[in-house]
Design a protein around this nucleic acid. Structure first.
Lengths: 238, 238
DNA sequence: ACGTCTAGGTGGTCG
DNA sequence: CGACCACGTAGACGT
């Protein structure tokens, strides 16, 4: 069945997988999607369910006799017992008490989400506008390959020195470590000579800035909207 | 209002925040929770909504005249226009076409999730059983403070040398970098003298192992169940 | 399939 | 409130 099934019911839920988790009896929303996924929601914690099973998984509604024996074991009336099995052998067992709502709805295929403003775009914008880093700067290449992975941007500054640029949406300590490893490697390459490092991000966390500075890496906080504006302005010229 | 509101409707959604995202008109599930959160679901991608707004946020149903003008702009009949504003100034706008279902349900407070089998336990177990690292090893202290943060475990090996231990559930490159920073700092402390490093995790990724070994850090893959077993065995003795 | 990196990450804790 | 860390992280993308 395609669509969504929405159940409001008293239920008790037990999950066993990497960890084990237990939800005592309470009234909750159970959502079953067309992809087979099952999620159990309270009326808080935003979109995150209390417990769930991700696809691929299979759900079985256990037969009346098993429901009866489980009910006896729990000392409580049950209207159903669902068992959801995941691929890795993890299980979600839902014991249903009173069911207050149960409806199914066809949704059809979704045209999907259109995103804009991610890291790739930021890298593209900086690649198009290396002068953002300084006057006289030029781009050598994007995704410059090294033995341990590609450097986001390889540039040359006004004096012709190579500069490795690491671009992040948010600049954190990991990014500085990553760039440090690239620089260490690139500086062994006699063809590149002395290589500078620039850490560019929309926002750079204080700790990351301290570490970068300590390692002689320059930091650049990028104004995404301004960069995009430059792009638009240029578009208008051509 | 406490509880959950479930709406099945044709809708178009626009989000503007860190990124901008757009959902063309299609039939979807809109869930509004008591915490104010709003999420828009298709019938796939498991529990993750296509788009959402996390609390704290406020939702406003715009008045009829605004709905009418938006409808004219879109060239489509609208039955409602919702605007959700987040704390950081991000907005989620939902334009509603045909509404196929709209129900609200009280859930009451949830007793909450009970978990077992997590991370902190691993550090505690290793702290109780330093001999896991080698014969004659002893624990000096947990969460040994340094200027850049606490080292998970400070131990002494059979020769009395200090050892800094970083504990992770999954050993990845970040953890090695972190331990490296601690070691660099601790080795400047004359009171500690030569400090060894051990990277302990349930699983250590190959890349992390290579980096650690290259830096003279020992790796230990920890068997969580075996450790817990030791614990249980000891429990039985007392 | 596996490894690596990103995420509007989300959610906790603790200073 | 911000920084740090873990997550049943989940997903995307490249090999």
């Amino acid at each position: 069945m395609a669509g969504v099934r929405l159940v409001i019911a008293h239920c008790q839920v037990d999950y066993a997988g990497r960890l084990t988790a237990h939800l005592p009896f309470a009234q909750r929303l159970i959502m079953v999607k067309a992809d087979g996924s099952v999620s159990i929601h309270a009326d808080d914690r935003a979109y995150k369910p209390l417990n769930w099973m991700s696809p691929p998984c299979t759900m079985a509604e256990l037969p009346a006799d098993e429901v009866a024996s489980a009910a006896e074991e729990m000392g409580r009336e049950l209207s159903g017992l669902w068992e959801v099995k995941g691929r890795d052998g993890d299980t979600l067992q839902i014991a249903l008490g009173e069911v207050l709502h149960d409806s199914s709805h066809e949704l059809g295929i979704d045209p999907g989400l259109q995103k804009d403003g991610v890291e790739a775009h930021l890298q593209a914008l900086l690649a198009e506008h290396p002068q953002t880093f300084g006057t006289g700067w030029s781009l050598v290449r994007r995704e410059h390959p090294t033995a341990i992975g590609p450097v986001d941007l390889l540039c040359r500054d006004a004096e012709g020195r190579y500069v490795a640029v690491e671009v992040k949406r948010r600049g954190e300590i990991d990014g500085v470590e990553q760039l440090t490893r690239y620089l260490e490697l690139m500086r062994r390459d006699p063809l590149l000579g002395e290589v500078r490092g620039v850490f560019a991000a929309q926002q750079i966390k204080p700790q990351a800035k301290v570490l970068a500075t300590d390692r002689g890496i320059d930091c650049l906080t990028v104004d995404y909207d301004a960069l995009r504006g430059m792009d638009n302005a240029e578009d208008r010229l051509f």
